[in-house]
């Protein structure tokens, strides 16, 4: 194994250096600056330590609401992706190569479309007098024209569409590693089709489901283009607020404080999640 293990000797370090340098300049440096900024005063007596930016977030109900909405949406989106993505991944793993390729392309397609076009697509479907509203009206399920634009439901729908491939593809990878004989064995032991999925496929897919849902959660909590286009100004999420503080109000200190809060809460959710799922997945 001596040749196979990668000790951090000179050659690998050299290979890593471009990436590390880039990460240092483009991520760690701005992140630390942001962190510093969130604790520093601005204006006449600039540069002194202060907690006023954080106090503002806590005191102002509006921003607490934004934070709450952001995490609620991210949780709902992640849950929906899991609910839709796992069965889909199971079907894809059992499909023949042609069907699987078609399904993969179909599922990645939204990712390859510009966010503007995609959002206008949703406008056509969800908007007032749109396809959804018209269909429901024709079916007699609703009386007046309705719109899901500028609603949380609309945001969730649009986000699930974009983020689903992340979950499906990671889960598919996990399922692909389960030997077919395990499911067959469970069938011969009396488990039905769904019993076999529940008792064998699902628990053994936990690593894929975990990393996939983490990705989905992280991406949805930090996204702001789709939420701001579909949700509008009334339904602000944290990333949108930060953007507004930085570029609209030029309140960098407050924007930085919001960023740090977003980061901290995200870490507080993600770290225990990773620990738990790796414990479950580690048994495989």
């Amino acid at each position: 194994m001596s040749t196979g293990t990668m000790r951090l000797s000179r050659e690998p370090a050299l290979l890593l250096s471009p990436g590390l340098l880039f990460l240092l300049l483009a991520f760690f440096f701005p992140a630390i600056q942001l962190l510093a900024q969130s604790f520093l005063t601005v204006g006449a007596e600039a540069g002194r330590f202060t907690l006023e930016h954080y106090a503002k977030v806590v005191v102002d109900d509006f921003y607490a609401g934004v934070a709450l909405r952001t995490f609620r949406l991210a949780l709902i989106i992640t849950a929906l992706c899991l609910l839709i993505g796992f069965p889909l991944a199971v079907v894809m793993s059992r499909a023949g190569p042609t069907l699987r390729t078609i399904l993969i392309v179909l599922i990645i397609l939204p990712l390859m479309t510009s966010v503007v076009i995609r959002t206008f697509g949703w406008l056509v479907i969800l908007g007032p007098g749109g396809v959804l509203s018209w269909t429901l009206q024709q079916l007699g399920l609703i009386e007046r024209s309705m719109s899901l634009m500028h609603t949380e439901t609309g945001v969730v729908l649009a986000m699930v569409q974009v983020l689903l491939p992340f979950l499906v593809l990671t889960t598919l990878g996990s399922i692909g590693q389960i030997p077919a004989s395990l499911e067959e064995a469970s069938r011969t032991m009396g488990a039905g089709f769904f019993g076999s999925i529940y008792h064998v496929t699902l628990p053994l897919s936990v690593p894929g489901l975990a990393s996939g849902s983490l990705l989905v959660f992280a991406l949805s909590i930090s996204s702001f283009i789709t939420p701001s286009l579909v949700g509008g100004v009334r339904l602000q999420v944290m990333a949108g607020s930060i953007y507004q503080q930085m570029t609209g109000s030029f309140d960098w200190g407050f924007g930085a404080a919001l960023s740090v809060i977003l980061l901290v809460i995200t870490l507080m959710l993600i770290v225990p999640y990773m620990v738990i799922t790796s414990r479950v997945g580690g048994r495989t």
Binding site: S181, E184, A185, T188, M189
Partner: peptide, 12 residues
Amino acid sequence: ALMFQSYALLPH
């Protein structure tokens, strides 16, 4: 009951 060549024990 079928005993598989690979045993097919459920790892979890």
